[in-house]
């Protein structure tokens, strides 16, 4: 299964399991979404549960809030990363804090799915990585799978979870590789990071599409005799602190890799947390390998912007093992 197919399977499973689950978004019905994540669901569940919305992101997320109040479980698809911006008000002023604003009485059991990131030669404003914005706003949980298996188990978790979840989908991985599974994976626990590769010389913490380059960098470094452990965050907020710290305590070196701009990114939080809680385990300064603090470039330059496996490997070699 590709990630697109496993996301589709997860939606299908939850819609069958719970008839309160409804999907909303632009072009998600007849065409099954621009990436086909909702393919065939309109046929299966009808237009009261798979709702083609007018082009109104703010209104769509706002409607999801109202649906939660009425006891439904809305799953919103935002067509591309930056089209979440018109909905920012609803995401942060309402979805994120409705529970708090009702004295903890009403949960917003909603998911906002957000295809994000570059690497697919997309036009301007179709390649942003805005995850840190959502991590920073209290009340939202932010998760991001890096492979088809996790995509399935994490989306099923997100739909069942009582709090609002921003579900970041690395669109570069949508069809990049397939996973074969005979039985569908278990539903995720909602917080745990994964040790995607074990190693002893350094810990690389990453998530989403950058996991791909991080794992490839680990392969490259192995040829030099450097053993790298790769931690896949999966949950960007909250962080699985014990997994990260546990790994750093074993390897004594920390590198964070993401495609999003560097400053105030998810990596900064990981690094700060390790500095606070495991400072004495570190044998060398921490390193962040990230996108630039600039708008995502026009796509002819995207390969220069997204950290490549060669770059990651060479920085780790130079910075940690001089």
């Amino acid at each position: 299964m590709t990630m697109v197919e496993s996301l589709n399977a997860a939606l299908d499973a939850e819609m069958t399991a719970d008839d309160r689950v409804v999907l909303l978004g632009e072009d998600i019905g007849t065409t099954g979404g621009v990436f086909r994540v909702t393919a065939d669901l309109l046929k299966r569940y009808g237009s009261l549960r798979v709702i083609d919305m007018p082009v109104s992101e703010a209104g769509t997320v706002g409607m999801a809030v109202g649906m939660c109040l009425a006891g439904l479980v809305p799953v919103v698809e935002i067509q591309f990363d930056s089209f979440a911006y018109p909905a920012f008000q609803q995401l942060v002023s309402h979805l994120a804090r409705y529970r708090w604003r009702t004295g903890g009485s009403v949960s917003m059991q909603a998911v906002v799915r957000l295809p994000f990131g570059g690497g697919i030669r997309a036009p301007e404003l179709h390649s942003d990585s805005p995850e840190a914005l959502f991590c920073h706003m209290p009340g939202l949980k932010v998760v991001c799978p890096s492979n088809p298996l996790d995509a399935y188990s994490m989306l099923r978790w997100a739909i069942r979870h009582p709090d609002p979840v921003v579900f970041m989908e690395p669109k570069r991985l949508y069809r990049l590789n397939r996973a074969w599974f005979n039985t569908m994976p278990e539903i995720w626990d909602g917080w745990s990071a994964a040790i995607a590769r074990q190693g002893s010389d350094a810990t690389v913490v990453s998530y989403g599409a950058s996991m791909h380059e991080s794992l490839a960098a680990a392969e490259l470094l192995e040829q030099d005799g450097i053993s790298v452990e790769v931690v896949d965050l999966r949950s960007l907020w909250p962080l699985d602190k014990s997994a990260i710290i546990g790994s750093v305590q074993r390897t004594h070196r920390l590198v964070v890799v993401h495609e999003a701009p560097r400053s105030c990114g998810v990596g900064a939080e990981v690094v700060a947390m390790v500095a606070e809680q495991a400072f004495e385990s570190l044998r060398s300064p921490v390193v962040r390998i990230t996108g630039l603090d600039t708008p995502f470039p026009m796509f002819s330059l995207e390969k220069e912007y997204i950290p490549s496996s060669e770059l990651i490997a060479s920085i780790i070699r130079k910075a940690l093992f001089k």
Binding site: S263, R288, G291, Y305
Partner: peptide, 28 residues
């Protein structure tokens, strides 16, 4: 074809240091 030097171009009017891919700081 544009090269790397285009990456930071135009982001700010003033010269600022922006966080870079490599963990170094590059000049915009």
């Amino acid at each position: 074809r544009p090269d790397r030097s285009w990456l930071g171009k135009g982001t700010f009017a003033s010269e600022v240091f922006i966080g870079g891919l490599t963990g170094e700081e590059v000049l915009s």
